[in-house]
Design a protein around this nucleic acid. Structure first.
Lengths: 255, 255
DNA sequence: AAACCCAGTTTTATAATATAAAACATTAGG
DNA sequence: CCTAATGTTTTATATTATAAAACTGGGTTT
Protein backbone atom coordinates (compact mmCIF):
# COMPACT_ATOMS: atom_id res chain seq x y z
CA UNK A 1 0.00 0.00 0.00
CA UNK A 2 1.83 2.99 -1.30
CA UNK A 3 1.22 5.93 1.01
CA UNK A 4 4.09 8.35 1.32
CA UNK A 5 4.20 9.23 4.97
CA UNK A 6 5.63 12.70 4.67
CA UNK A 7 3.20 13.69 1.94
CA UNK A 8 0.36 12.25 3.94
CA UNK A 9 1.42 14.31 6.93
CA UNK A 10 1.77 17.46 4.85
CA UNK A 11 -1.76 17.03 3.52
CA UNK A 12 -3.05 16.35 7.00
CA UNK A 13 -1.60 19.69 7.99
CA UNK A 14 -3.60 21.38 5.23
CA UNK A 15 -6.69 19.54 6.39
CA UNK A 16 -6.42 21.09 9.83
CA UNK A 17 -7.54 24.42 8.46
CA UNK A 18 -11.18 25.17 7.81
CA UNK A 19 -13.62 28.04 7.98
CA UNK A 20 -13.19 28.23 11.73
CA UNK A 21 -9.45 27.77 11.76
CA UNK A 22 -7.62 30.36 9.70
CA UNK A 23 -4.31 30.31 11.56
CA UNK A 24 -2.30 27.80 13.58
CA UNK A 25 1.00 27.78 15.43
CA UNK A 26 3.54 25.05 14.94
CA UNK A 27 2.86 23.64 18.39
CA UNK A 28 -0.88 23.51 17.68
CA UNK A 29 -0.24 21.43 14.60
CA UNK A 30 2.36 19.37 16.38
CA UNK A 31 -0.07 18.55 19.17
CA UNK A 32 -3.05 17.87 16.98
CA UNK A 33 -1.20 15.49 14.70
CA UNK A 34 1.09 14.01 17.32
CA UNK A 35 4.21 14.95 15.41
CA UNK A 36 7.48 16.38 16.59
CA UNK A 37 7.64 20.13 16.18
CA UNK A 38 10.76 19.99 14.06
CA UNK A 39 9.00 17.59 11.71
CA UNK A 40 6.07 19.94 11.43
CA UNK A 41 8.44 22.78 10.86
CA UNK A 42 10.09 21.11 7.85
CA UNK A 43 6.77 20.13 6.37
CA UNK A 44 5.44 23.66 6.74
CA UNK A 45 8.54 25.15 5.13
CA UNK A 46 8.08 22.91 2.14
CA UNK A 47 4.42 23.81 1.81
CA UNK A 48 5.35 27.45 2.28
CA UNK A 49 7.87 27.30 -0.57
CA UNK A 50 5.13 26.30 -2.94
CA UNK A 51 2.58 28.79 -1.67
CA UNK A 52 0.17 26.20 -0.29
CA UNK A 53 0.73 27.62 3.15
CA UNK A 54 1.22 31.25 4.06
CA UNK A 55 2.81 32.78 7.12
CA UNK A 56 1.42 35.81 8.86
CA UNK A 57 4.32 38.25 9.11
CA UNK A 58 2.76 39.86 12.18
CA UNK A 59 2.60 36.86 14.47
CA UNK A 60 4.42 34.11 12.58
CA UNK A 61 1.33 31.93 12.50
CA UNK A 62 0.58 29.72 9.55
CA UNK A 63 -2.51 29.68 7.34
CA UNK A 64 -3.61 28.30 4.00
CA UNK A 65 -1.88 29.82 0.99
CA UNK A 66 -3.33 31.52 -2.05
CA UNK A 67 -2.03 28.79 -4.29
CA UNK A 68 -4.90 26.67 -3.06
CA UNK A 69 -7.38 29.20 -4.34
CA UNK A 70 -5.52 29.42 -7.61
CA UNK A 71 -5.40 25.67 -8.18
CA UNK A 72 -8.88 25.24 -6.77
CA UNK A 73 -10.29 27.45 -9.46
CA UNK A 74 -8.59 25.49 -12.19
CA UNK A 75 -10.56 22.48 -11.02
CA UNK A 76 -13.90 24.07 -11.74
CA UNK A 77 -12.87 26.14 -14.73
CA UNK A 78 -12.66 23.01 -16.79
CA UNK A 79 -16.36 22.67 -16.11
CA UNK A 80 -17.68 25.82 -17.66
CA UNK A 81 -21.05 25.43 -15.99
CA UNK A 82 -20.10 28.05 -13.51
CA UNK A 83 -19.59 30.83 -16.03
CA UNK A 84 -22.80 30.07 -17.84
CA UNK A 85 -24.93 29.61 -14.77
CA UNK A 86 -23.95 32.85 -13.11
CA UNK A 87 -26.60 34.96 -14.79
CA UNK A 88 -29.30 32.35 -14.22
CA UNK A 89 -28.50 32.24 -10.52
CA UNK A 90 -28.66 36.02 -10.40
CA UNK A 91 -31.91 36.06 -12.25
CA UNK A 92 -33.48 33.42 -10.04
CA UNK A 93 -32.43 35.10 -6.84
CA UNK A 94 -33.76 38.44 -8.00
CA UNK A 95 -37.07 37.08 -9.23
CA UNK A 96 -37.75 34.89 -6.20
CA UNK A 97 -35.89 36.84 -3.55
CA UNK A 98 -34.32 33.59 -2.35
CA UNK A 99 -30.79 32.28 -2.37
CA UNK A 100 -29.76 30.33 -5.45
CA UNK A 101 -27.00 27.73 -5.49
CA UNK A 102 -25.03 25.80 -8.07
CA UNK A 103 -23.80 22.39 -7.00
CA UNK A 104 -21.86 19.55 -8.63
CA UNK A 105 -21.32 15.94 -7.64
CA UNK A 106 -17.97 14.84 -6.23
CA UNK A 107 -17.83 11.25 -5.11
CA UNK A 108 -20.66 10.65 -2.65
CA UNK A 109 -21.27 14.30 -1.89
CA UNK A 110 -22.32 17.53 -3.54
CA UNK A 111 -20.02 20.53 -3.64
CA UNK A 112 -21.30 24.11 -3.74
CA UNK A 113 -19.72 25.83 -6.73
CA UNK A 114 -21.50 29.14 -6.64
CA UNK A 115 -24.28 30.99 -4.92
CA UNK A 116 -26.21 34.21 -5.18
CA UNK A 117 -28.04 35.51 -2.18
CA UNK A 118 -31.52 36.88 -2.76
CA UNK A 119 -32.65 40.21 -1.32
CA UNK A 120 -35.24 38.53 0.89
CA UNK A 121 -33.02 35.75 2.08
CA UNK A 122 -31.69 35.46 5.56
CA UNK A 123 -27.96 35.71 5.20
CA UNK A 124 -26.50 32.32 5.83
CA UNK A 125 -22.81 31.69 6.11
CA UNK A 126 -20.97 31.36 2.86
CA UNK A 127 -21.24 27.93 1.30
CA UNK A 128 -18.99 28.03 -1.72
CA UNK A 129 -16.58 25.12 -1.61
CA UNK A 130 -18.59 23.37 1.09
CA UNK A 131 -19.90 19.86 0.85
CA UNK A 132 -23.46 18.66 1.27
CA UNK A 133 -24.79 15.11 1.74
CA UNK A 134 -26.82 13.59 -1.07
CA UNK A 135 -29.59 11.97 0.98
CA UNK A 136 -30.89 15.06 2.73
CA UNK A 137 -30.61 17.79 0.14
CA UNK A 138 -32.61 18.72 -2.91
CA UNK A 139 -29.44 19.25 -4.94
CA UNK A 140 -28.08 15.90 -3.84
CA UNK A 141 -31.20 14.14 -5.03
CA UNK A 142 -31.24 16.07 -8.30
CA UNK A 143 -27.61 15.20 -8.95
CA UNK A 144 -28.04 11.44 -8.83
CA UNK A 145 -31.72 10.74 -9.50
CA UNK A 146 -31.31 10.80 -13.26
CA UNK A 147 -28.41 8.36 -13.39
CA UNK A 148 -29.07 4.76 -14.31
CA UNK A 149 -29.82 2.30 -11.55
CA UNK A 150 -26.42 0.69 -11.65
CA UNK A 151 -24.58 3.96 -11.12
CA UNK A 152 -26.89 4.98 -8.30
CA UNK A 153 -26.24 1.67 -6.58
CA UNK A 154 -22.52 2.25 -6.87
CA UNK A 155 -22.72 5.69 -5.31
CA UNK A 156 -25.05 4.51 -2.57
CA UNK A 157 -22.90 1.51 -1.75
CA UNK A 158 -21.69 1.91 1.83
CA UNK A 159 -23.44 5.26 1.97
CA UNK A 160 -24.21 6.42 5.48
CA UNK A 161 -27.63 8.00 5.95
CA UNK A 162 -26.77 10.41 8.71
CA UNK A 163 -29.88 11.75 10.47
CA UNK A 164 -29.65 15.52 10.19
CA UNK A 165 -33.18 16.42 11.29
CA UNK A 166 -36.32 14.53 12.22
CA UNK A 167 -37.34 14.56 8.55
CA UNK A 168 -34.12 13.11 7.15
CA UNK A 169 -34.48 10.03 5.00
CA UNK A 170 -32.35 7.38 6.67
CA UNK A 171 -32.95 4.20 4.72
CA UNK A 172 -31.75 3.14 1.32
CA UNK A 173 -35.05 1.75 0.10
CA UNK A 174 -36.86 4.89 1.14
CA UNK A 175 -34.21 7.02 -0.56
CA UNK A 176 -34.41 5.01 -3.76
CA UNK A 177 -38.18 5.59 -3.84
CA UNK A 178 -37.54 9.28 -3.34
CA UNK A 179 -35.08 9.33 -6.24
CA UNK A 180 -37.68 7.58 -8.38
CA UNK A 181 -40.11 10.35 -7.50
CA UNK A 182 -37.55 13.03 -8.35
CA UNK A 183 -36.88 11.41 -11.68
CA UNK A 184 -40.53 11.28 -12.65
CA UNK A 185 -41.36 14.84 -11.61
CA UNK A 186 -38.12 16.33 -12.98
CA UNK A 187 -37.13 18.27 -9.88
CA UNK A 188 -36.17 17.53 -6.28
CA UNK A 189 -37.40 18.82 -2.94
CA UNK A 190 -35.83 18.81 0.50
CA UNK A 191 -38.43 19.41 3.16
CA UNK A 192 -36.49 20.29 6.31
CA UNK A 193 -34.45 17.14 5.81
CA UNK A 194 -31.17 18.96 6.16
CA UNK A 195 -31.99 21.96 8.31
CA UNK A 196 -35.10 22.58 10.37
CA UNK A 197 -37.25 25.30 8.90
CA UNK A 198 -35.51 25.27 5.54
CA UNK A 199 -37.04 23.90 2.39
CA UNK A 200 -35.07 23.63 -0.84
CA UNK A 201 -35.92 22.81 -4.41
CA UNK A 202 -33.44 21.73 -7.04
CA UNK A 203 -33.35 20.96 -10.75
CA UNK A 204 -30.69 19.15 -12.80
CA UNK A 205 -28.44 20.77 -15.41
CA UNK A 206 -27.58 18.54 -18.34
CA UNK A 207 -24.73 18.68 -20.81
CA UNK A 208 -24.85 18.11 -24.55
CA UNK A 209 -24.93 14.37 -23.97
CA UNK A 210 -27.98 14.88 -21.76
CA UNK A 211 -26.05 13.76 -18.70
CA UNK A 212 -26.66 15.56 -15.43
CA UNK A 213 -23.52 17.49 -14.56
CA UNK A 214 -24.79 19.94 -11.96
CA UNK A 215 -27.89 21.12 -10.13
CA UNK A 216 -29.29 24.52 -9.30
CA UNK A 217 -31.40 25.16 -6.25
CA UNK A 218 -33.43 27.68 -4.32
CA UNK A 219 -33.47 27.71 -0.53
CA UNK A 220 -36.59 28.95 1.23
CA UNK A 221 -37.74 29.38 4.78
CA UNK A 222 -40.87 27.44 5.71
CA UNK A 223 -42.08 30.35 7.79
CA UNK A 224 -41.99 32.77 4.89
CA UNK A 225 -42.91 30.86 1.76
CA UNK A 226 -46.24 29.12 1.27
CA UNK A 227 -47.10 26.26 -1.05
CA UNK A 228 -48.41 28.50 -3.81
CA UNK A 229 -45.25 30.54 -3.94
CA UNK A 230 -43.17 27.40 -3.92
CA UNK A 231 -45.04 26.20 -6.97
CA UNK A 232 -44.09 29.29 -8.92
CA UNK A 233 -40.50 29.00 -7.70
CA UNK A 234 -40.35 25.46 -8.99
CA UNK A 235 -41.56 26.61 -12.37
CA UNK A 236 -38.95 29.33 -12.54
CA UNK A 237 -36.24 26.98 -11.38
CA UNK A 238 -37.17 24.37 -13.97
CA UNK A 239 -37.19 26.96 -16.69
CA UNK A 240 -33.77 28.24 -15.73
CA UNK A 241 -32.41 24.71 -15.55
CA UNK A 242 -33.82 23.98 -18.96
CA UNK A 243 -32.35 27.05 -20.60
CA UNK A 244 -29.02 26.47 -18.93
CA UNK A 245 -28.94 22.89 -20.17
CA UNK A 246 -29.71 24.15 -23.65
CA UNK A 247 -26.80 26.54 -23.47
CA UNK A 248 -24.44 23.81 -22.28
CA UNK A 249 -25.02 22.25 -25.66
CA UNK A 250 -23.66 25.04 -27.84
CA UNK A 251 -20.45 24.95 -25.87
CA UNK A 252 -18.81 28.32 -26.31
CA UNK A 253 -15.26 27.49 -25.31
CA UNK A 254 -13.71 29.69 -22.64
CA UNK A 255 -11.11 30.62 -25.25
CA UNK B 1 17.63 23.69 4.62
CA UNK B 2 14.56 21.76 5.44
CA UNK B 3 12.77 20.77 2.26
CA UNK B 4 11.05 17.43 2.37
CA UNK B 5 11.76 15.90 -0.98
CA UNK B 6 8.67 13.75 -1.30
CA UNK B 7 6.37 16.59 -0.26
CA UNK B 8 8.14 18.90 -2.66
CA UNK B 9 7.63 16.39 -5.45
CA UNK B 10 3.98 15.94 -4.58
CA UNK B 11 3.42 19.68 -4.74
CA UNK B 12 5.28 19.88 -8.01
CA UNK B 13 2.84 17.37 -9.37
CA UNK B 14 -0.05 19.63 -8.38
CA UNK B 15 1.72 22.54 -10.03
CA UNK B 16 1.75 20.74 -13.37
CA UNK B 17 -1.96 21.31 -13.76
CA UNK B 18 -3.33 24.62 -14.95
CA UNK B 19 -6.14 25.99 -17.07
CA UNK B 20 -4.73 24.31 -20.14
CA UNK B 21 -3.87 21.05 -18.46
CA UNK B 22 -6.82 19.40 -16.83
CA UNK B 23 -5.65 15.79 -17.01
CA UNK B 24 -2.33 13.99 -17.08
CA UNK B 25 -1.20 10.39 -17.29
CA UNK B 26 1.39 8.96 -14.95
CA UNK B 27 3.97 8.81 -17.72
CA UNK B 28 3.38 12.47 -18.59
CA UNK B 29 4.09 13.46 -15.03
CA UNK B 30 6.98 11.07 -14.80
CA UNK B 31 8.57 12.57 -17.91
CA UNK B 32 7.95 16.18 -17.03
CA UNK B 33 9.40 15.88 -13.54
CA UNK B 34 12.06 13.33 -14.37
CA UNK B 35 10.81 10.89 -11.75
CA UNK B 36 10.35 7.18 -11.91
CA UNK B 37 6.80 6.16 -12.72
CA UNK B 38 6.46 4.07 -9.61
CA UNK B 39 7.48 7.07 -7.53
CA UNK B 40 4.89 9.20 -9.26
CA UNK B 41 2.36 6.48 -8.71
CA UNK B 42 2.85 6.43 -4.96
CA UNK B 43 2.75 10.20 -4.72
CA UNK B 44 -0.45 10.33 -6.75
CA UNK B 45 -2.08 7.66 -4.60
CA UNK B 46 -1.33 9.67 -1.50
CA UNK B 47 -2.70 12.86 -3.02
CA UNK B 48 -5.70 10.89 -4.23
CA UNK B 49 -6.42 9.58 -0.74
CA UNK B 50 -6.79 13.11 0.49
CA UNK B 51 -8.83 14.34 -2.46
CA UNK B 52 -6.22 16.76 -3.75
CA UNK B 53 -6.03 14.73 -6.93
CA UNK B 54 -8.90 13.01 -8.68
CA UNK B 55 -8.87 10.16 -11.13
CA UNK B 56 -11.07 10.05 -14.18
CA UNK B 57 -12.83 6.67 -14.01
CA UNK B 58 -13.23 6.62 -17.78
CA UNK B 59 -9.61 6.82 -18.83
CA UNK B 60 -7.66 6.55 -15.57
CA UNK B 61 -6.09 9.95 -16.05
CA UNK B 62 -5.37 12.21 -13.11
CA UNK B 63 -6.58 15.75 -12.48
CA UNK B 64 -6.82 18.21 -9.63
CA UNK B 65 -9.21 17.21 -6.87
CA UNK B 66 -12.16 19.07 -5.44
CA UNK B 67 -10.45 19.38 -2.09
CA UNK B 68 -8.35 22.14 -3.62
CA UNK B 69 -11.47 24.11 -4.39
CA UNK B 70 -12.78 23.45 -0.92
CA UNK B 71 -9.62 24.56 0.87
CA UNK B 72 -9.06 27.34 -1.63
CA UNK B 73 -12.33 28.90 -0.65
CA UNK B 74 -11.47 28.79 3.02
CA UNK B 75 -8.53 31.01 2.22
CA UNK B 76 -10.65 33.82 0.92
CA UNK B 77 -13.66 33.32 3.18
CA UNK B 78 -11.68 34.67 6.06
CA UNK B 79 -11.53 37.87 4.07
CA UNK B 80 -15.19 38.68 3.77
CA UNK B 81 -14.58 41.29 1.09
CA UNK B 82 -15.79 38.87 -1.49
CA UNK B 83 -19.27 38.48 -0.07
CA UNK B 84 -19.75 42.17 0.39
CA UNK B 85 -18.35 43.21 -2.94
CA UNK B 86 -20.46 40.88 -5.01
CA UNK B 87 -23.38 43.22 -5.37
CA UNK B 88 -21.17 46.22 -6.11
CA UNK B 89 -19.43 44.31 -8.86
CA UNK B 90 -22.81 43.35 -10.28
CA UNK B 91 -24.03 46.87 -10.07
CA UNK B 92 -20.92 48.31 -11.72
CA UNK B 93 -20.98 45.84 -14.55
CA UNK B 94 -24.65 46.49 -15.23
CA UNK B 95 -24.35 50.27 -15.10
CA UNK B 96 -21.22 50.47 -17.22
CA UNK B 97 -21.64 47.40 -19.36
CA UNK B 98 -18.01 46.48 -18.66
CA UNK B 99 -16.38 43.67 -16.74
CA UNK B 100 -15.76 44.29 -13.06
CA UNK B 101 -13.07 42.54 -11.02
CA UNK B 102 -12.15 42.15 -7.38
CA UNK B 103 -8.46 41.64 -6.66
CA UNK B 104 -6.34 41.22 -3.54
CA UNK B 105 -2.61 41.41 -2.96
CA UNK B 106 -0.60 38.25 -2.40
CA UNK B 107 3.12 38.75 -2.10
CA UNK B 108 4.31 40.67 -5.15
CA UNK B 109 1.26 39.94 -7.27
CA UNK B 110 -2.46 40.54 -7.37
CA UNK B 111 -4.94 37.65 -7.33
CA UNK B 112 -8.36 37.83 -8.96
CA UNK B 113 -10.94 36.93 -6.36
CA UNK B 114 -14.12 37.58 -8.25
CA UNK B 115 -15.42 39.00 -11.47
CA UNK B 116 -18.70 39.92 -13.11
CA UNK B 117 -18.88 40.23 -16.84
CA UNK B 118 -20.81 43.17 -18.24
CA UNK B 119 -23.36 42.78 -21.01
CA UNK B 120 -21.27 44.85 -23.41
CA UNK B 121 -17.98 43.24 -22.59
CA UNK B 122 -16.12 40.97 -24.90
CA UNK B 123 -16.00 37.66 -23.15
CA UNK B 124 -12.49 37.09 -21.94
CA UNK B 125 -11.32 33.84 -20.45
CA UNK B 126 -12.13 33.37 -16.81
CA UNK B 127 -9.71 35.05 -14.49
CA UNK B 128 -10.76 34.01 -11.03
CA UNK B 129 -7.78 32.59 -9.16
CA UNK B 130 -5.34 34.01 -11.69
CA UNK B 131 -2.44 36.27 -10.85
CA UNK B 132 -1.65 39.67 -12.29
CA UNK B 133 1.57 41.70 -12.08
CA UNK B 134 1.53 44.88 -10.03
CA UNK B 135 3.47 47.16 -12.36
CA UNK B 136 1.25 46.89 -15.42
CA UNK B 137 -2.25 46.71 -14.00
CA UNK B 138 -4.62 49.27 -12.54
CA UNK B 139 -5.51 46.94 -9.70
CA UNK B 140 -1.87 46.30 -8.96
CA UNK B 141 -1.18 49.98 -8.65
CA UNK B 142 -4.27 50.56 -6.53
CA UNK B 143 -3.28 47.73 -4.19
CA UNK B 144 0.10 49.14 -3.23
CA UNK B 145 -0.02 52.87 -3.96
CA UNK B 146 -1.57 53.71 -0.59
CA UNK B 147 0.94 51.83 1.52
CA UNK B 148 3.72 53.72 3.23
CA UNK B 149 7.00 54.19 1.38
CA UNK B 150 8.82 51.59 3.42
CA UNK B 151 6.33 48.84 2.63
CA UNK B 152 6.29 49.73 -1.05
CA UNK B 153 10.06 49.49 -1.15
CA UNK B 154 9.89 46.07 0.45
CA UNK B 155 7.41 44.78 -2.10
CA UNK B 156 9.31 46.31 -5.01
CA UNK B 157 12.62 44.95 -3.82
CA UNK B 158 13.90 42.55 -6.49
CA UNK B 159 10.72 43.15 -8.44
CA UNK B 160 11.02 42.36 -12.15
CA UNK B 161 9.35 44.85 -14.47
CA UNK B 162 8.42 42.52 -17.26
CA UNK B 163 7.53 44.35 -20.47
CA UNK B 164 4.04 43.17 -21.39
CA UNK B 165 3.24 45.76 -24.07
CA UNK B 166 4.92 48.80 -25.53
CA UNK B 167 3.27 50.93 -22.86
CA UNK B 168 4.39 48.89 -19.86
CA UNK B 169 6.25 50.80 -17.17
CA UNK B 170 9.59 49.06 -16.83
CA UNK B 171 11.56 51.14 -14.37
CA UNK B 172 11.29 51.46 -10.62
CA UNK B 173 11.62 55.22 -10.50
CA UNK B 174 8.96 55.64 -13.15
CA UNK B 175 6.71 53.21 -11.33
CA UNK B 176 7.16 55.02 -8.02
CA UNK B 177 6.13 58.28 -9.69
CA UNK B 178 3.08 56.50 -11.10
CA UNK B 179 2.18 55.23 -7.64
CA UNK B 180 2.52 58.76 -6.31
CA UNK B 181 0.08 59.89 -8.97
CA UNK B 182 -2.36 57.11 -8.07
CA UNK B 183 -2.19 58.05 -4.44
CA UNK B 184 -2.96 61.69 -5.08
CA UNK B 185 -5.84 61.10 -7.47
CA UNK B 186 -7.32 58.24 -5.49
CA UNK B 187 -7.66 55.76 -8.34
CA UNK B 188 -5.38 53.92 -10.76
CA UNK B 189 -5.33 53.57 -14.51
CA UNK B 190 -3.70 51.04 -16.80
CA UNK B 191 -3.50 52.32 -20.34
CA UNK B 192 -2.72 49.29 -22.50
CA UNK B 193 0.15 48.51 -20.19
CA UNK B 194 -0.91 44.93 -19.74
CA UNK B 195 -2.84 44.11 -22.89
CA UNK B 196 -2.94 46.08 -26.12
CA UNK B 197 -6.28 47.76 -26.67
CA UNK B 198 -7.40 47.28 -23.09
CA UNK B 199 -7.67 50.08 -20.59
CA UNK B 200 -8.50 49.44 -16.95
CA UNK B 201 -9.34 51.62 -14.00
CA UNK B 202 -9.14 50.54 -10.38
CA UNK B 203 -9.97 51.89 -6.93
CA UNK B 204 -8.84 50.67 -3.51
CA UNK B 205 -11.08 49.05 -0.90
CA UNK B 206 -10.19 49.87 2.68
CA UNK B 207 -10.97 48.05 5.91
CA UNK B 208 -12.02 49.55 9.23
CA UNK B 209 -8.40 50.49 9.95
CA UNK B 210 -8.34 52.37 6.63
CA UNK B 211 -5.82 49.93 5.21
CA UNK B 212 -6.18 48.90 1.58
CA UNK B 213 -7.15 45.25 1.50
CA UNK B 214 -8.43 44.85 -2.05
CA UNK B 215 -9.15 46.72 -5.26
CA UNK B 216 -12.05 46.76 -7.67
CA UNK B 217 -11.65 47.48 -11.34
CA UNK B 218 -13.38 47.98 -14.65
CA UNK B 219 -11.85 46.75 -17.90
CA UNK B 220 -12.64 48.63 -21.09
CA UNK B 221 -11.71 48.37 -24.72
CA UNK B 222 -9.98 51.44 -26.16
CA UNK B 223 -11.90 51.04 -29.38
CA UNK B 224 -15.27 51.22 -27.68
CA UNK B 225 -14.95 53.63 -24.78
CA UNK B 226 -14.02 57.27 -25.15
CA UNK B 227 -12.51 59.62 -22.58
CA UNK B 228 -15.83 61.09 -21.53
CA UNK B 229 -17.33 57.70 -20.78
CA UNK B 230 -14.23 56.70 -18.91
CA UNK B 231 -14.64 59.74 -16.69
CA UNK B 232 -18.11 58.65 -15.66
CA UNK B 233 -16.88 55.10 -15.13
CA UNK B 234 -14.20 56.38 -12.80
CA UNK B 235 -16.80 58.27 -10.80
CA UNK B 236 -18.99 55.20 -10.50
CA UNK B 237 -16.03 53.04 -9.59
CA UNK B 238 -14.88 55.44 -6.90
CA UNK B 239 -18.35 55.66 -5.45
CA UNK B 240 -18.64 51.87 -5.29
CA UNK B 241 -15.20 51.59 -3.71
CA UNK B 242 -16.14 54.18 -1.14
CA UNK B 243 -19.41 52.53 -0.17
CA UNK B 244 -17.76 49.14 -0.03
CA UNK B 245 -15.04 50.48 2.24
CA UNK B 246 -17.71 51.96 4.47
CA UNK B 247 -19.42 48.60 4.72
CA UNK B 248 -16.17 46.85 5.57
CA UNK B 249 -16.22 48.90 8.72
CA UNK B 250 -19.47 47.67 10.24
CA UNK B 251 -18.20 44.16 9.91
CA UNK B 252 -21.24 41.93 9.82
CA UNK B 253 -19.64 38.64 10.76
CA UNK B 254 -20.26 35.71 8.42
CA UNK B 255 -22.01 34.08 11.36
C1' DA C 1 -5.65 -15.32 -32.67
C1' DA C 2 -1.09 -14.77 -31.22
C1' DA C 3 2.45 -11.75 -30.25
C1' DC C 4 3.73 -7.36 -29.11
C1' DC C 5 3.79 -2.85 -27.05
C1' DC C 6 2.60 0.48 -23.89
C1' DA C 7 0.73 2.18 -19.51
C1' DG C 8 -0.07 1.29 -14.99
C1' DT C 9 0.52 -1.30 -10.74
C1' DT C 10 2.91 -4.14 -7.22
C1' DT C 11 6.92 -6.05 -5.07
C1' DT C 12 11.41 -5.70 -3.25
C1' DA C 13 16.34 -4.24 -1.92
C1' DT C 14 19.00 -0.63 -0.91
C1' DA C 15 20.44 3.71 0.00
C1' DA C 16 18.94 8.02 0.62
C1' DT C 17 16.04 10.82 3.42
C1' DA C 18 12.66 11.96 6.86
C1' DT C 19 12.55 11.97 11.55
C1' DA C 20 12.92 13.35 16.37
C1' DA C 21 16.31 14.34 19.91
C1' DA C 22 18.89 17.77 21.50
C1' DA C 23 20.98 21.98 21.28
C1' DC C 24 20.32 26.71 20.12
C1' DA C 25 17.82 31.18 19.50
C1' DT C 26 14.31 34.33 20.30
C1' DT C 27 10.53 36.28 22.40
C1' DA C 28 7.14 36.80 26.10
C1' DG C 29 5.90 36.86 30.86
C1' DG C 30 6.48 37.13 35.77
C1' DC D 1 16.46 39.61 35.09
C1' DC D 2 15.36 35.21 35.10
C1' DT D 3 12.24 31.66 33.51
C1' DA D 4 9.11 29.60 30.32
C1' DA D 5 7.53 28.81 26.00
C1' DT D 6 7.88 28.74 21.07
C1' DG D 7 10.29 28.42 17.00
C1' DT D 8 14.51 27.14 14.43
C1' DT D 9 18.79 24.60 13.30
C1' DT D 10 21.83 20.76 13.63
C1' DT D 11 22.78 16.01 13.79
C1' DA D 12 22.56 10.69 14.15
C1' DT D 13 20.02 6.85 13.00
C1' DA D 14 16.69 3.94 11.42
C1' DT D 15 12.82 4.27 8.99
C1' DT D 16 10.98 5.10 4.58
C1' DA D 17 11.05 6.79 -0.07
C1' DT D 18 12.90 5.31 -4.11
C1' DA D 19 13.65 3.08 -8.56
C1' DA D 20 14.58 -1.37 -10.59
C1' DA D 21 12.37 -5.16 -11.98
C1' DA D 22 8.73 -8.08 -12.38
C1' DC D 23 3.84 -8.36 -13.26
C1' DT D 24 -0.78 -7.31 -15.20
C1' DG D 25 -3.90 -5.97 -18.55
C1' DG D 26 -5.62 -3.43 -22.55
C1' DG D 27 -5.09 -2.39 -26.98
C1' DT D 28 -3.06 -2.76 -31.60
C1' DT D 29 -0.84 -5.05 -35.34
C1' DT D 30 0.45 -8.68 -38.11
Amino acid sequence: MPVIQSVDRALRILDLFDEHTAELKITDISNQLGLHKSTVHSLLKTLLNHGYISQNPENGKYGLGMKLFERGNYVIQSLDVRELSKKYLMDLSVKTGQTAHLVILDGKEGVYIDKVEGPMAVILYSKIGKRIPLHCSAVGKALIAFKDQEEIKKILNEYVYFKQTEYTITGESEFLRELQQVQSQGYAVDNQENEPGVRCIAAPIRNHENKVIAAISLSTLIARIDEAQLETFIEQLEQAAFQLSEQMGNGIPIS
